[in-house]
Nucleic acid binder design. Structure first.
Lengths: 156, 156
DNA sequence: CCATATATTACGATTCCCATATTATATGAC
DNA sequence: GTCATATAATATGGGAATCGTAATATATGG
């Protein structure tokens, strides 16, 4: 029974690969942002908004771990660039709903096209069952990241 | 033969999970940095240095997609905080070697401990063969990210 | 030895981030 | 209904970060 040791080794490799992946995706994000005159955090916000749908500045600030006042500046920048709109909620006129505008987002998509195709090629080498296994692993990892980040963000 | 369609669906899920994972890892990084009075990019630099070993400012600037002058400010900050040292290369006295100091890096490790354990738990649910499959996928994805980012960074 | 190239850093202008204060609106007690 | 309090977002100002350009130090080739 040496698969125990194999598992341990593979787990170590996975963690290292995950660290590398984080860096590479962050760098890719940075390069994409550079082409669009956007800061890294701007694209993060757009990504969260795209995934989550319209949300308020406070909620978004919590999601990305920033001070609300900081987000005001970011939203000003995104609004000026035509990336988002800010609409007051009629039900609670203190509240604002941030919505992503579709037009400019095709530019982001185009810049990510290279990575998108590379991922298609990688995935083509796996069976459907394997892909589902990987998908599950990635979702669980993302959730683990969410939980860990949440705990750290709690105090302060 | 409907596994074709299953594959297509799983690939889409993988891409979405990867986007989510990127955001969560970026946020985790941000929270860790907050505890240590470090900027996001500072931890990125430390990570690259830890992985790659000692390197010059120019090389590191290329790795993280920053202007060399920007890196000077980052290195000043890291040096002031006792995270790194800068040593002149005796062979080429224009060149500088950046080295990570081990002492403070245990603090980073401690802050990542929660995520580390969560990953152990996740990995415990897979066989050795499955873990190796996942490890390979992650490495290939990281490489794809590196290639894509490199292409975007080329022009400009 | 000199001209050119390279590695890093200094400097200055612009922009960003965030703590605090401010404005507008909602909610609950009475 | 009125007032006190709480909440959402933003304005403001100070300190810090980023980056283009210039400066400094060193290397290399003729």
């Amino acid at each position: 029974m040496e698969s125990k040791q194999t598992s341990r080794r593979a787990t170590t490799v996975i963690k290292a690969a995950l660290r590398d992946l984080r860096i590479q995706l962050a760098l890719l994000n940075h390069q994409v942002g550079g082409k669009l005159a956007l800061k890294d955090i701007d694209l993060d916000c757009l990504d969260v908004l795209a995934k989550h749908g319209p949300m308020t500045p406070s909620a978004l600030a919590r999601q990305v771990g920033l001070h609300p006042a900081t987000l005001t500046g970011i939203l000003d920048r995104l609004e000026r660039g035509g990336w988002i709109t800010r609409d007051r909620d009629p039900a609670d006129r203190r509240s604002v709903s941030i919505r992503v505008l579709p037009d400019r987002n095709v530019e982001v998509y185009r810049l990510y096209r290279g990575m998108n195709r590379a991922m298609d090629e990688i995935c083509a080498d796996y069976t459907a069952a394997e892909l589902e296994l990987i998908a599950g692993f990635l979702q669980r990892s993302a959730d683990a990241g969410r939980t860990s980040a949440g705990k750290l963000g709690q105090d302060s």
